[in-house]
């Protein structure tokens, strides 16, 4: 990848500066958000509903546009250049609250679709990797089933494996456990913990305090389209500095 040299020197994986976004209906969803994510870092974003968490992380892979500020991902500046957006999407994986598996494809085909189409890799080679990934998230025996035949927790693990099959440098998670039954939350969090231990760069929107405490390098609290507080998990949960943070924590703890 060739980017302008002065940008390429930035060591950060994600560098967001003064990002502002208005939805087409005029709603001001992001009001100057800054965030830096280093390589290998795990950043957890928390905040009340409607505070702009999803909107924010969806700007990282251009699922949402923004109007002001700048975002660079792995040295590539996000602007209107469509080729750059494609390049960034190849390097950024995303896991959704609703899994969004492709219901008409088998589990294995869900994994191999993008690497074959986008990375132009051979099907056989991708198949091996896909099986290894399913092994890693613990559902190799479901490889030939269809998404509709799996439990929510299994589906979300397939979704993670599907993202990994593109060999991304960053993984974005938007409330990956929020639509799961409580007994399935752990199996998904364990997979995510394993990824963090392997050094994957991750930005995770979640309200799982246990996960944030154990895995996150930093916790960011968003409210009303702004970053209110940014701190290590210990500081954030034990000595929150801002009134908004205390208020939020009192609601979820």
């Amino acid at each position: 990848m060739t980017a302008e040299p002065k940008v390429a020197k930035t060591p950060a994986m994600i560098e967001a500066r003064g990002v502002e976004k208005w939805y087409p209906n005029g709603f001001h969803a992001l009001r100057g958000v800054d965030l830096t994510v280093q390589r290998g870092e795990v950043v957890v974003i928390m905040g009340p509903s409607g505070s702009g968490k999803s909107t924010f992380i969806r700007t990282f892979n251009a699922l949402e546009e923004f109007q002001k500020g700048s975002i660079t991902v792995d040295g590539i500046a996000l602007n209107d250049d469509l080729r750059k957006i494609d390049a960034i999407r190849r390097e950024v994986g995303m896991v959704f609250q609703q899994f969004n598996l492709f219901p008409h494809l088998s589990v294995l085909d869900n994994l191999t679709l993008a690497p074959v189409l986008v990375r132009k890799r051979s099907k056989g080679e991708v198949l091996n990797q896909a099986m290894a990934l399913l092994e890693r998230v613990g559902i190799a025996e479901q490889a030939h089933k269809f998404p509709g035949q799996l439990s929510g927790g299994q589906q979300q693990r397939v979704a993670i494996a599907r993202s990994l099959c593109m060999e991304p440098r960053i993984l974005l998670f938007d409330e990956p456990t929020s639509s799961l039954d409580p007994e399935m939350v752990r199996e998904v969090l364990e997979v995510m913990q394993g990824l963090a231990a392997d050094g994957m760069t991750m930005v995770v929107v979640t309200h799982e305090v246990g996960f944030a405490r154990q895995v996150a390098d930093r916790v960011v609290l968003m409210a009303d389209g702004q970053v209110v507080e940014e701190a290590t998990p210990e500081r954030f949960f034990d000595q929150p500095q801002h009134e908004r943070s205390r208020q939020f924590l009192s609601q979820i703890l």
């Binding site: 999407r89 950024v92 995303m94 993008a114 986008v118």
Partner: peptide
Amino acid sequence: PRGQLEAARSLGLS
């Protein structure tokens, strides 16, 4: 669902 297109696009599909 909208999420289908978003998931496909976020995997890098044109």
